[in-house]
Design a protein around this nucleic acid. Structure first.
Lengths: 169, 169
DNA sequence: TCAAACTCTACCGTATACGTCAGGGACTGT
DNA sequence: ACAGTCCCTGACGTATACGGTAGAGTTTGA
């Protein structure tokens, strides 16, 4: 009854809990805020930060971009800004005024998403090549290992296992 | 006649050319050498570095690990060491002496390769999720865009295009 | 043999992305 | 109202991965 009924389920978390949940340090959270990657969260009376659920999601998004894609925080800043714009547009209950402006923003977001997708596609492609490479190498090493083991099993006798190349041409 | 006949085709490149070919700076090449990522190349009489074709491949391999996988140079050092060991083992004309030692080294390499593959697999998986995410978002934005364009096409007339939701539910 | 181009080592500088205090408040349960 | 815990803002420190420059030596073509 003290606050508006709509806020009732709006969970807020202090920085310590956010740090635990997301796996990033408090220092890093403040750092991201300082750098504009996170928009300033609410505060309690005394100044304690209060993060929302969306803030937490955004933090995880940032980490993904960083670790999976290897983007710099500067790159990421652009991306989260585009993402924010995207969410705003989606959430907007279509005022249907200023259509050209809305269209333009939509284009900007499509651009950003397209660029991200290109990077991801490229990375996936390269990684899959690498994956195959590694698998092939591993297979070869496994063969090698079995050959060695076979040689060992047939004991250290002088010329017990002279030929193991049954497949080579 | 001055050098052994076998060396005839062994191309060597000075640091400048290597830098151009690989796209990394001379400074970085020396840096990698200093850090043990590249083993010291040959030198000319006066001390100029002479890189081999394998050196160049290794440099490209390092860059891949760095940019695609986001490994630190420390990680990469381990990996290139394992890779080197692998090549040595593969290249060795099986002296068939000290089999246990060879088997152990083989195991070490298999370990390294397995770890790399795990990282790559993991990364590919996450990236594919991201890929689908981005594609879905893009699709939604495209729909949005077409809606907006439709609204525009039907001119800015007051209530010309009030309902565009023909697909929703 | 000489100049232009290239390379050498050594050392200091820089950008990124945080870590680590210090000194001082804020919040919570009892 | 007070201990214990949590959080605040600077300010300085650190690891990584190089960049830049100086001052000197090396190579190579004419």
């Amino acid at each position: 009854m003290t606050s508006s009924a709509a806020d009732e389920k709006a969970q807020r978390y202090q920085i310590g809990e956010v740090a635990e949940r997301t796996g990033v340090t408090q220092r890093t959270l403040r750092f991201y805020e300082e750098k504009g990657l996170l928009n300033p969260p609410e505060r309690m009376e005394g100044g304690f930060r209060l993060y929302s659920q969306e803030d937490i999601q955004r933090i995880q998004y940032i980490r993904q971009l960083q670790q999976l894609l290897g983007f710099t925080l500067a790159d990421i800043k652009e991306m989260v800004e585009a993402e924010e714009l995207r969410q705003q547009i989606i959430a907007t209950f279509r005022p249907d005024r200023e259509l050209p402006a809305r269209l333009e923003r939509t284009d900007r977001i499509i651009d950003a998403l397209t660029r991200q997708l290109e990077v991801v596609d490229d990375k996936v492609e390269h990684l899959q090549t690498m994956q195959e490479d590694l698998r092939a190498k591993l297979a070869r090493m496994d063969v090698r290992k079995k050959e060695l083991q076979a040689s060992l099993t047939s004991q250290g006798a002088g010329g017990a296992a002279p030929e193991a190349k049954g497949k080579k041409k």
